[in-house]
């Protein structure tokens, strides 16, 4: 049993095209320049519907994290315990992710940098201590 593979869809296609090229893409509002994540159809700040995809720095800090011990999906049996993290990107948005480091080395506020690993047919961001 493997982990559930992420799949690209219409709204998220530019994000997964980015990860395939080693870049973390974010949406940004053409009207007010506010970043959006995950995918939005209209800007949550100015409510305009004109968002563009731009390259992010791929850098951020660890906002919070947990260490999962309970098995919710059989695909994670070999991974337990594993960490679930919320990363605050330098551009502002926070995203769910995994940090590629032992759980006892995780600290809220630590600096992180996105790398990319294959997951089925797409590449996904995984964060490394910077």
């Amino acid at each position: 049993m493997t982990r559930p593979s992420p799949t690209s869809d219409e709204l998220s296609a530019p994000f997964f095209e980015g990860t395939a090229n080693g870049v973390l893409m974010l949406q940004r509002c053409r009207n007010c320049a506010k970043y959006a994540f995950p995918v939005q159809e209209i800007c949550t700040n100015c409510l305009e519907g004109d968002l563009e995809w731009v390259e992010s720095s791929g850098e951020g800090t660890l906002h919070t994290f947990g260490v999962m011990h309970h098995l919710y999906h059989p695909g994670f049996a070999r991974d337990l315990p594993y960490n679930v993290a919320v990363v605050e990107l330098t551009e502002g948005p926070r995203m769910s992710a995994r940090v590629d480091a032992p759980s006892d080395e995780l600290e809220v506020g630590m600096e992180l940098k996105a790398t990319f690993e294959p997951a089925g047919e797409v590449m996904v961001p995984v964060f490394q201590p910077a």
Partner: peptide, 17 residues
């Protein structure tokens, strides 16, 4: 599918988390 499927890949499940 799409962005929510990333959560599942990371194993970020449920209210407990």
């Amino acid at each position: 599918t799409g962005m929510p499927s990333l959560h599942s890949y990371y194993g970020h499940f449920g209210a407990n988390t």
